[in-house]
């Protein structure tokens, strides 16, 4: 395991922008004084004339992005998830969502894995907020390969997209040569018949570790990666519900309004079965090293294994 490469998806975001900048001359990047942290600084270094710092003013940045999109540019507005989805929510809704403008929002430092900065900066609500905006596409990539592919797909897609990236370096498990990103399509990573684990973002790798361990213990767990939270892949979820009749969702986000809620909505409508949600419960985060916090809040392969075994009475 020592040769597993770890890369933070915010790093992937910055690198993808710098790469795509060559191909898309119409691509512009906005940031709100966080270019070093969101990694848009990588793009800035390569394309200084196509990077605009808006200062610590996220509301205005989203409006400026709307204006750029309304005049034919493809702006990537970047900040921490807390400010991009939280502080600027109403501007994203009214100035970007309602006119359905071609703005891409790159939200880094999402979730509890922000770590030491603590609860004020740990955004566990962004997916919930963005899901309520009509026409908003939401992508939560799981590793470097998927994150880069997601940014490339976002440029091609016409319409508003919210992309969620993390601060913590996480294992790269997708194979970059064979990986294929399809907007709105879930990916089945493991076959399984006893239970389905549906995960998103950096919890996908934890789900894979859990499934492999469970397999050794005689439990057949299907693993599905939902990178596009909206529009969600109803088909792959309904099929899993029909075939395994038991689902666990795992996300580094509040269990209210995120992946767990989205999956539950589909299951209730298409093929009702029991769904158990693993995520941040109805509480705020706290300071601490990211890896320790993920364990503390149950966002680990160990907790997935424990939950699955309890559900199957094993």
């Amino acid at each position: 395991m020592s040769d597993v490469v770890k890369i933070a998806t915010r790093e992937s975001y910055g690198n993808a922008l710098a790469e795509l900048g060559d191909k898309y001359e119409n691509l512009y990047v906005l940031d709100a004084d966080l270019a070093a942290a969101t990694k848009t600084g990588i793009f800035k270094k390569k394309f200084p004339d196509r990077f605009f710092d808006c200062g610590i003013a996220e509301a205005n940045m989203m409006g400026v992005a709307a204006g750029l999109a309304a005049t034919g540019k493809i702006p990537f507005a970047s900040s921490f998830a807390m400010f991009a989805a939280g502080r600027a929510f109403e501007i994203v809704r009214n100035s970007i969502g309602y006119p359905h403008l071609n703005v891409k929002i790159g939200a880094t430092h999402a979730g509890i894995s922000v770590g030491e900065d603590g609860a004020t900066h740990q955004c566990n609500e962004d997916i919930a907020l963005m899901r309520t905006i009509p026409g908003m596409t939401i992508i939560n990539p799981a590793d470097d390969v998927e994150a880069r592919a997601a940014v490339a797909a976002a440029v091609e897609y016409v319409g508003p997209v919210y992309m969620r990236f993390g601060r913590l370096a996480v294992p790269v498990f997708n194979d970059k040569d064979s990986y294929k990103f399809e907007l709105g399509k879930g990916i089945q990573l493991r076959q399984g018949s006893d239970i389905t684990i549906i995960a998103t973002g950096l919890m996908v790798n934890e789900a894979l570790i859990a499934a492999d361990t469970l397999k050794e213990q005689g439990i057949s767990a299907r693993v599905i990666n939902i990178h596009t939270i909206k529009p969600i892949d109803r088909e792959i979820i309904a099929k899993a519900a029909a075939e395994t009749k038991l689902i666990v969702t795992v996300e580094e986000h509040s269990i209210i309004g995120g992946l767990g809620s989205a999956v539950t909505e589909v299951v209730c409508e298409e093929c009702p079965c029991k769904v158990v949600r693993i995520g941040v419960n109805d509480e705020f985060g706290c300071s601490g090293p990211a890896v320790e916090l993920l364990k503390k809040f149950g966002l680990s392969s160990e907790n997935i294994i424990k939950t699955v075994r309890q559900l199957l009475n094993k």
Partner: peptide
């Protein structure tokens, strides 16, 4: 909000 969008258009 309109003034920000206008600034974006001007930029």
């Amino acid at each position: 909000q309109g003034i920000s969008a206008a600034a974006g258009m001007a930029l």
